[in-house]
């Protein structure tokens, strides 16, 4: 039954497709879709240096186009994602990374909010304990 449905669908598709004279299947823009997908994922976490509020993936600046071309080349040469990122950081610095590296200087950035959460939770707990006191409290409905 399922097979029949698929066949019917295929026929329907064929009929539809052949009704227009030059119909063809759309081709991916890049020659290598796998590489393009890799480029996309990687460049989404990189910052464009020219129009500084877009990612390298979305920027249409000429430098961004050049850099994407360069990344494609590096990837074709078999470089890993990390090597590609290192290549860019060596030239433009940590600025290109939308995800800053974790090091001494960014420790506050990465762990500060969690510290705030933990300290806040701890302080709240102590204050609540003090506030509740020792007497017995009755629950209140709604």
């Amino acid at each position: 039954m399922k097979k029949l449905l698929i066949i019917l669908l295929l026929i329907a598709n064929f009929v539809l497709a052949s009704s227009s004279a030059f119909a063809g299947e759309a081709k991916p823009l890049g020659d290598d879709p796998v590489l393009e997908a890799r480029l996309k994922t990687l460049s989404q976490d990189l910052r464009c240096l020219v129009c500084q509020n877009t990612t390298l993936a979305d920027s249409s600046a000429p430098l961004a186009e050049d850099l994407r071309q360069e990344i494609r080349k590096l990837m074709r040469e078999g470089k890993s994602d990390k090597e590609v990122v290192d290549y860019l950081v060596a030239r433009y610095g940590d600025f290109v990374l939308y995800k800053p590296p974790v090091n001494n200087e960014t420790a506050l950035l990465w762990f500060g909010p969690f510290m705030l959460l933990i300290i806040g939770g701890f302080v709240l707990f102590r204050v609540l304990k003090k506030h509740a006191g020792s007497e017995d409290i009755q629950a209140e409905d709604v």
């Binding site: 240096l49 030239r91 433009y92």
Partner: peptide
């Protein structure tokens, strides 16, 4: 083609 520029980290 801007290749040397990339090596020098030129962005503007």
């Amino acid at each position: 083609n801007g290749k040397i520029g990339i090596d020098y980290g030129v962005y503007g």
